[in-house]
Write a protein that binds this DNA or RNA. Structure first.
Lengths: 148, 148
DNA sequence: ATTCATGCAAAGTGTTTGCACTAAT
DNA sequence: ATTAGTGCAAACACTTTGCATGAAT
């Protein structure tokens, strides 16, 4: 939905991070999808290629990579999710099928300035989450209820 | 920061919920603060008034009350938080002191419409989170890093 | 009297950590 | 050679659940 500003494995060494197989594959897996996977989903995918990787290593690397800004970590009702798309964008969660879609950023700068002015706070970044029904789920009747 | 649209304990009976002491106090505690407490923080507060209440009861009621729309449940990096202010509003999280402030809603309808038009999705609701430094923390030097 | 809500304890989740070993630098 | 990174298992924190008792209707 949005062009990706990818951060390749090359970026690792420059930051004093060793380029290990698990780390490389973990980053690749997260960057290769736009499904905003949870840790255990990344784990499952990584193990298809590196069967002996441990869940702990996946967690450790996701944390490290997020700290380095190579991917984004976001918490929602179902726990942690990871996003290889580090470009500014918003999210839309379908309340029926549960999928999370990237959507173009909506009025970012303007909104942030408005808040800064009203509150006197310094706004460094923000996050916008939309909830509703995706195109595929519109037209169907029953809706699965989810926490917001 | 925002006027509260409170939902008093009276609202309970009308929804087929029994008005028990634990339930009444839990709702009061959440509605009496704007600190967006986590479950265990509510638990601690409730026990000051009702020392024998169990943590399970707090969790069960927070879930029930949120399902009835009497309070809001939101997930962030530190787990579940509850908000007695059910009026439309956004949040500002101070990255230094960790406090969460309510801020007036920023361009809600307009933004939602924009996304709906761009994506073809049906937007039912949305959530905006700002991050930065609150007034009290501005001017201080060091900043505590937190997950987004 | 009925049945919803509670307290307790046990069981689940998802995530983190200690440690000895392995591998990248 | 050095030390960051790994796998494993145990520990952890948070949240949910089963069940018998108690309270609101």
């Amino acid at each position: 939905m949005i062009p990706k500003k990818g951060a390749g494995p090359e970026s690792l060494r420059g930051r004093g991070l060793r380029l290990t197989e698990p780390r490389r594959v973990i980053l690749e897996v997260v960057c290769a999808t736009d499904s905003h996977p949870c840790a255990s989903s990344v784990y499952r995918e990584v193990r298809k290629r590196l069967p002996s990787v441990s869940l702990a290593t996946v967690y450790r690397n996701l944390r490290t990579l997020a700290a380095e800004g190579l991917l984004l970590e976001r918490a929602d009702a179902d726990g942690l999710r990871f996003d290889g798309n580090v470009a500014r964008h918003d999210h839309f969660t379908c309340l029926r099928c549960g999928r999370v879609f990237d959507v173009p950023p909506a009025g970012a700068a303007r909104t942030r300035r408005a808040v800064a002015v009203r509150t006197g706070f310094e706004v460094l970044h923000h996050r916008v989450e939309f909830y509703g029904r995706c195109a595929a789920c519109r037209g169907r009747t029953r809706r699965t209820t989810r926490a917001v």
